[in-house]
Design a protein around this nucleic acid. Structure first.
Lengths: 335, 335
DNA sequence: GCACTTTGCGCAATCGGTTGTTCTATATCC
DNA sequence: GGATATAGAACAACCGATTGCGCAAAGTGC
């Protein structure tokens, strides 16, 4: 580990040491403007050797940039969503860092965008990633009114907003189609929160798959807004009464409870009941039987969101809506 | 929502509009230096009315500060730890914001402190909170070598490091003592990662409690470094062979697997086996029976850590090690 | 009322960079 | 070889704040 026996170098120190002007050093580093090849290399060698690092604050002040992006995390997300956000955040961070940006973190409460306002007003960020959106979102309203670049992770109904999301509709459609082709015809759905756009999209996929297969929809085997364990158990009971041959869970926490309930009822998976879930998160990782699921690449989602934001910050045109892929992972639970 | 019909005001704009100098405006805001009461109020009224906000970058440059603190999150933490870190982060954020600081986030990998180095070298932070420590921690080494203020959340063996932690040793000691007083004498321990200091501290508490009660230790009923479900199951089998009357889990994910295994073996909790866990996280929230656990206030931990860091940044003396309280929550699983 | 302290405020330097402009020495053209 | 273009580097203004210093006006003591 090297120690800092000297105080930090400034650009003036470097310039003086080399007998050149500050601007020469600056241009050598940025590569912009006219500069001689030999001078350039002399400078680069020197700063490499002496470990000079430009002060990003000063650089930012001169360019009226911060080299920070704000990331707004929901403060109250559920345990299931946590690994997803975490992984997504890693994707954002990697990308940001690779472009010499840092992540300024803030938490959101649905009703309050004080922190966001602070960040923006204090000139601390060049752009923002919103990690969750609400149906009527004051954060989005605010950011639009300020004209600051921002991207949402997850879909919004707002057409003006640049958004990056997984293709939940087609993912769900494909999963259901595959299950229907396995001669399962009564596929129950359970989980999700109705007001979330993501749930709506998944439902669309469920419906489309049935339409394509020419199978009539049965509203009695679709249970959304069931979160508490007791509600889930009751839903499972109803699904059993309805004699479904497969249960698709909209998240892994719900699925865990479903599996527990089935175990309690001595119904074996997949022999007597097929089961599938979303996310493929670590909660079900070691479950026996292994669980068929839809897998989304949260890291890639973060990466793409961040890259998109960078384009916006640099004033480039971007795709208004980017949909990312998914993977249907067939395992024992639907064999 | 107000819109920004004008471009952002600078201190010069304000000064000009009021017919005073920039320094007067600056002093009016900071309250430092000599300034007349009436002038001061005139300035404050104006900036309030016109929503002027100082540019933190410029301020930082002049003061050689950034008004950011870096928070280093472990990249690879387990699902169980997530709510804990999340809550802790909220505590840090609240505190930081209340002192006009922002949070710069970065992820750590055990073996690499590249991001940390970047943050420090790029002059992006005034201080750092390390959210997890290892027995031999290169991040700590680096930060010490740089002389930058930092605080660890969680204990370190390193005596030079300012650290804030829950009192895991005494928490565990008290829990075990209570259990021993219930005439349980063979208390198995399961979970935790040996290289984490927190695990070592809990083990110490476990040992102390036994010593105080005059009960001999039995290494055969202590299982650390068991993470995978299959390992946990095997550990539970061994504990059953050893005829323990209680199982204490070092985290809630492990506990969930333990409970599943016991269910599979048709061993009823608490009748045939007492069970206790840590964190009191939402994973076990709805479990029947309800689970006895140690509860730590993660938010407070964040708050205290952040406050301590602020003191360090301002050059004030701080307590070298702060230990926060805990709560033993007795529920059905140990009745 | 005079010398001295205090108060209020402006000037200008500074923080560490970027960038438009200017100047000079060299290269290019015919 | 003289006029012109051009490359390389220095100069200086600037980004938006803070802060030491100086100066005039007001306040204080005897």
């Amino acid at each position: 580990m090297e120690q800092s026996n000297e105080k930090k170098l400034t650009i003036s120190d470097v310039a003086e040491a080399l007998g050149v002007s500050k601007s020469t050093v600056s241009r050598a580093i940025s590569g912009k403007g006219r500069i001689g090849k030999t001078t350039r290399e002399r400078v680069l060698t020197y700063i490499e050797k002496h470990n000079y690092k430009p002060n990003v604050l000063a650089k930012g002040l001169a360019q009226l940039k911060t080299y920070n992006i704000g990331v707004m995390l929901p403060e109250d997300y559920s345990v299931v969503d946590l690994p997803f956000f975490q992984t997504c955040l890693i994707g954002i961070e990697e990308t940001a860092v690779s472009m010499d940006y840092d992540i300024l973190l803030t938490m959101s409460r649905e009703s309050d965008c004080g922190q966001l306002v602070r960040m923006v007003e204090n000139h601390k960020v060049d752009g923002i990633v919103l990690m969750r959106t609400f149906t009527k979102d004051i954060h989005i309203e605010y950011l639009k009114s300020q004209g600051i670049p921002f991207v949402t992770v997850g879909s919004t109904n707002d057409q003006d907003v640049v958004q990056v999301d997984n293709d939940h509709k087609n993912a769900c459609r494909e999963l259901i189609s595959i299950l229907l082709m396995k001669k399962l015809s009564r596929i129950g759905l359970i989980g999700g929160i109705e007001s979330h756009v993501v749930t709506q999209n998944r439902l669309k996929g469920y419906i489309e798959a049935h339409k394509e297969a020419g199978i009539a929809l049965n509203q009695d085997i679709v249970f959304v807004n069931v979160e508490k364990e007791i509600m889930i158990q009751r839903a499972v009971e109803k699904l059993l009464q309805e004699q479904v041959d497969c249960i698709v869970c909209l998240d892994d926490a719900v699925c865990m409870h479903v599996l527990n309930k089935l175990r309690k009822e001595h119904i074996s998976v997949p022999k007597q009941m097929k089961v599938a879930s979303f996310y493929d998160s670590s909660i079900l990782e070691n479950n026996l039987p292994s669980i068929t699921s839809l897998s989304f690449n949260a890291r890639e989602l973060g990466t793409v969101a961040c890259k998109t934001l960078m384009e916006l910050i640099e004033g480039n045109a971007v795709k208004q809506r980017t949909l990312l892929g998914y993977e249907v992972i067939l395992k024992e639970s639907t064999m």
